[in-house]
Design a binder for these strands. Structure first.
Lengths: 186, 186
DNA sequence: TACTTATGTAAGTATGCACTTACTATCAAG
DNA sequence: CTTGATAGTAAGTGCATACTTACATAAGTA
């Protein structure tokens, strides 16, 4: 995990942005390069191919998120709020499409693998987070999958609605957390 | 809304399938036609363009769903179960990508409009459904948006995880409904 | 100064895609 | 038995895209 040159960092930023706006096939190398303010050929010199650039971009995304989920503070409600805010920020940057790309880009094995690993890693971290609060007696026991779906699902849904509709119903974070806690507290 | 010829019906089926598997740009007219068992040129004769075919496909999808949501039975839990099952079935057929296409296909105004209308129509229907049970005193008052996100979000999340991962955590429908009712019952 | 490294410009290749055109085959209805 | 509708085959057009190659430039370093 070496540091990124500014050129590489700008390409990754631009790639993430465009991924969110247009999806995998819609994010063209020309446009990524233009948005990053570099020549298209530089993209290929640095990353070799579009698939590899996007795989890198996906790998880098979400480090802060894992950081929080890996270290529960003991204050469940506060942690949930932080996670929700972080996750929402990521979704706005196209994180939602991580999922979709997995199908859209199914033909690029390298990209698919990177996506799968990134997502799986996060899920494991998040599962550990919920298990911690289950063990602490604050959340009901049972499958952590149910907690993951219940907590992140509404965030994802709100983000997808926002992408698809002009006047999408907004998600009230406080209400969401309130409902989640009511539904799943021990 | 005239009836579909079998050719048209098969094209729409195939389009919906491939949309789910590959996304908008990934679903090529060649492959759609092949899966439908017709010549590619027939697709263009019938629908004029790829965008119009997909817009039609999206429009037709989900009639059964609206049917249920528009007529609450009075038994909230049973209705929720039916809706969840119907919705999950649709998501498996690529319904989740309806959202994503909206960004991926942002350049096709006709498709984007059809998607927006289809989605907006459903949201209105579903909002009405929840309002009915709020008025009946079974669900807490407040924004119906929160209920929509809380109920459908987890279904969407589970579907997206399933697309992206080989061994995705499954969603236990009963547990989901249970948690939802706990969290949002009056 | 000479060499290296990171970038740029410009042109081009190969491929895949949506969509078109021209012609043929089948079949049901009048 | 002709006509019209619906389908097919085959070939091709035009364009956008990922990726390549060749050459130039500027800056930093030995």
């Amino acid at each position: 995990m070496h540091l990124l040159s500014s050129t590489e960092a700008r390409l990754i930023e631009a790639a993430l942005d465009l991924l969110g706006e247009r999806g995998y096939k819609g994010a063209t190398t020309r446009e990524i390069a233009a948005r990053a303010g570099v020549a298209e050929v530089t993209l290929f010199r640095r990353f070799g191919s579009k698939a590899r650039l996007l795989a890198e971009a996906v790998r880098r995304a979400g480090a802060a998120f894992k950081e929080v989920a890996a270290h529960p503070s003991g204050d469940l409600r506060a942690d949930l709020r932080t996670l929700a805010e972080l996750y929402r920020g990521q979704l706005q940057r196209g994180g939602a499409l991580v999922f979709v790309m997995a199908s859209e880009a199914a033909r690029e094995p390298e990209l698919r693998r990177a996506l799968g690993e990134a997502l799986a890693g996060r899920l494991v971290t998040v599962a550990g987070f919920f298990k911690y609060y289950q063990a602490a007696g604050e959340l009901r026991g049972g499958e952590t999958a149910a907690l993951i779906h219940a907590f992140f699902g509404p965030l994802i849904a709100a983000s997808l609605f926002g992408v698809a509709l002009e006047r999408a119903p907004a998600l009230d974070l406080e209400a969401h957390i309130e409902g989640f806690l009511r539904g799943w507290s021990a």
